[in-house]
Amino acid sequence: MITAERKPLEEIIECIRPYDRILLVGCNECVTVCAAGGRKEVGLLASALRMAFMKEGRTLEITELTLERQCDPEYVEELVTMIDAADAVLSMACGCGVQEVARRYKNKPVYPAVNTKFMGASVSQGVWAERCQGCGDCILGLTGGICPVARCSKRLLNGPCGGSTSGKCEISDDVECAWQLIWDRMKELGIQDRYEEVMVAKDWRTSRDGGPRKIVREDLA
């Protein structure tokens, strides 16, 4: 899923300071799962903002709404009845959701209330970690199911580098060395002999380097 974290309250307040009426929109998908921008977080942020404005002697009118999926035009359409009553939209969805609102409601300012972080998985209660960079040409089949592009700090395709120490990455004791994990898994699978095959330079065109990407499915279009 896509993970996100709420921005600091002060930063959000600065964004919406010029407005009196805010439409605060959450999303029921990824940001709900990672507890950054679902219904609950929308409620919490709304009260925090009201309080902060009250302290400044102002009243902030906030309409709260959590859409099923903010990156989907069908659901973003639901805002149509309330958009005119707001001076600005504050979105708690990932960057995709924020942009979908901006695309649909052309003359309404929209501000992100979260920082979209990465595509990751849940590691334990309250902990998420990066797993995929969407390189567009998946090589997990060659690396024992562990992604060096997303999980090696230098995205080495022929790691590990000389800084790998006791299973940890040279950048921090908190980061596992992806290549230690790959090697352990290769051993587990009995495919160690594949390690010495050189992984050739990657074609990054399928990744962000090839320009903004798009999928067109003729069969569905």
Partner: peptide, 24 residues
């Protein structure tokens, strides 16, 4: 060489290129 991670240097905020690795 692949080089030390930017984290260790004087521009830890720099983009990390790694288009190729040392083997490539």
């Amino acid at each position: 060489l692949s080089g030390d991670h930017p984290k260790f240097g004087d521009h830890p905020m720099a983009a990390n290129v790694y288009d190729l690795d040392s083997v490539q």
